[in-house]
Simulated scan of single mutants.
Amino acid sequence: MGILDHASDIFSFESSRKSKKKPMQTVEIKVKMDCDGCVRRVKNAVSSMKGVRSVDVNQKQSKVTVYGNVEPNKVLKKVKETGKKAEFWPYVPYNLVSYPYASQAYDKKAPSGYVRNVAQALPSPNAPEEKLTYLFSDENPNACSIM
Rank of each mutant, 00 (worst) to 15 (best):
M1C: 05
G2Y: 04
G2T: 10
G2N: 12
D5S: 07
D9W: 01
D9V: 03
I10Q: 05
F11V: 08
S15T: 10
S15I: 01
S16H: 10
K18W: 08
S19M: 06
S19T: 14
K20R: 10
P23G: 04
M24G: 01
Q25T: 13
T26I: 15
T26E: 14
E28V: 13
I29S: 12
K32Y: 11
K32F: 09
G37Y: 10
C38T: 06
R40A: 09
V46C: 05
S48F: 04
M49R: 07
K50C: 04
K50P: 05
S54L: 04
V55S: 07
V55Q: 06
Q59R: 15
Q61R: 12
V64K: 05
V64Y: 02
T65L: 04
T65K: 12
T65Q: 13
V66E: 08
V70R: 01
P72H: 06
N73P: 00
N73C: 00
L76F: 07
K77Y: 06
K80W: 00
K80C: 01
E81S: 15
T82V: 05
K84F: 14
K84N: 13
A86T: 02
P90Q: 07
P93M: 02
P93G: 03
P93T: 10
Y94L: 15
Y94P: 01
Y94M: 11
V97N: 06
S98R: 04
S103G: 01
Q104D: 11
P111D: 06
G113A: 06
G113F: 12
G113C: 09
Y114S: 07
N117I: 01
V118L: 07
A119G: 03
Q120H: 08
L122C: 04
L122A: 12
P123V: 13
S124T: 12
P125T: 08
E129Q: 09
E130C: 00
T133Y: 13
D138C: 01
E139F: 10
E139I: 01
N142D: 14
S145R: 15
S145V: 15
